[in-house]
């Protein structure tokens, strides 16, 4: 069972303070760090998470998803929906399984020897792990952006044109030109590169390279983009560009972002999922998670009380 919500203990004591708190409509009571579990194991839910793991009309539905690397269970029974046209941030300490979970969503774990996924993951209601599934086609619907920008050592144009070419998304050169242009525009990069489309992508700044990787993903018109720490190699301005882009993109697609920056999770996401030792501990509206986290482990992590 998840640890029950901690009892609210009024810190203010006095009778007038209670009146003021309710008048202002702001609950400033601390969540009351009262119950101290005797061990970490006791604090971990054995099943399920607190908050709300479900959404109406999800793009992804994960049910009891576990991932093993050989004998080691790196992700344990995660049940979680991912909503359309919104950003879900996955946070948690290093090694808690965020990247492993993310890789379940586009079957990237298939490429890791010894990795095994159990449970079900559906995309638009269809099981992505069913036998006959065309994995290449699946991955075209799900873009992925990594921590380190990884453009091909080719021109900017060729980087964006690559996906549409192999998936045969366009019929003419003019179509392809247009798709490259709109993808770069959607990635907020067009104005910076329109005069040097045929120069090497590796000559761009890190932030530009990361937006190019997003443009490259957008060119195959995915429904979802998975981002694994997309800003951790970028400066604050390049980070702000990416965050702004994420905010624009969620008008048309779903984004799952793994981040070590709690501030970034708070800034860009509508829902936040907190992972701990392979378990999904808490998931809920970002507004709630950062003001009223329900699980003690979530609160300890976001307030920097960890280890």
């Amino acid at each position: 069972m998840p640890e029950p919500r901690r009892a609210d203990v009024s810190a203010a004591g006095g009778s007038t303070s209670g009146k003021h708190a309710s008048e202002s409509g702001l609950d400033l009571k601390p969540s009351g760090r009262v119950h101290v579990p005797s061990s970490l194991e006791e604090a971990l839910p054995t099943e399920g998470s607190v908050g709300n793991a479900f959404v109406d009309d999800p793009v992804f539905s994960c049910r009891d998803v576990s991932v093993f690397y050989g004998e080691k269970e790196a992700v344990r029974k995660v049940t979680l929906d991912i909503g359309r046209r919104q950003v879900l941030a996955a946070i948690g300490p290093s090694g808690c399984g965020k990247s492993t979970f993310l890789r379940c969503l586009n079957r990237m774990n298939d490429t890791i020897p010894g990795a095994r996924v159990t449970g079900t993951v559906t995309l638009d209601g269809q099981d992505i792990y069913e036998k006959r599934r065309d994995v290449a086609q699946l991955r075209a619907r799900i873009g992925m952006v990594f921590q380190k920008p990884n453009p091909f050592p080719k021109s900017i144009y060729e980087n964006v044109a690559y996906g549409p070419r192999i998936h045969r998304l366009t019929r003419s050169r003019a179509d392809l030109d247009e798709l490259v242009c709109t993808s770069l525009q959607r990635a907020g990069l067009w104005n910076e590169v329109k005069d040097r489309l045929h120069t090497l992508a590796t000559g761009m700044s890190g932030g530009q390279q990361q937006r190019l990787c997003i443009a490259r993903t957008l060119a195959v018109q995915p429904e979802v983009i998975l981002m694994d720490e997309p800003c951790s190699a970028l400066d604050p301005i390049a980070t702000a560009h990416i965050e702004d882009l994420i905010d624009d993109l969620r008008a048309s697609l779903a984004i799952v972002i793994v981040t070590h920056s709690m501030q970034q999770a708070a800034r860009v996401s509508q829902r936040t999922a907190y992972f701990h030792m392979g378990r999904l501990i808490e998931v809920g509206d970002t507004d709630d998670v950062f003001t009223n986290p329900q699980h003690r482990l979530t609160e300890d992590y976001i307030t920097g009380r960890f280890g």
Binding site: L28, P30, S31, R33, M262, T291, N292, E299, I302, T303
Partner: peptide, 8 residues
């Protein structure tokens, strides 16, 4: 940049 109980 306190959050949650610290911010409160």
């Amino acid at each position: 940049q306190p959050v949650a109980s610290d911010l409160k």
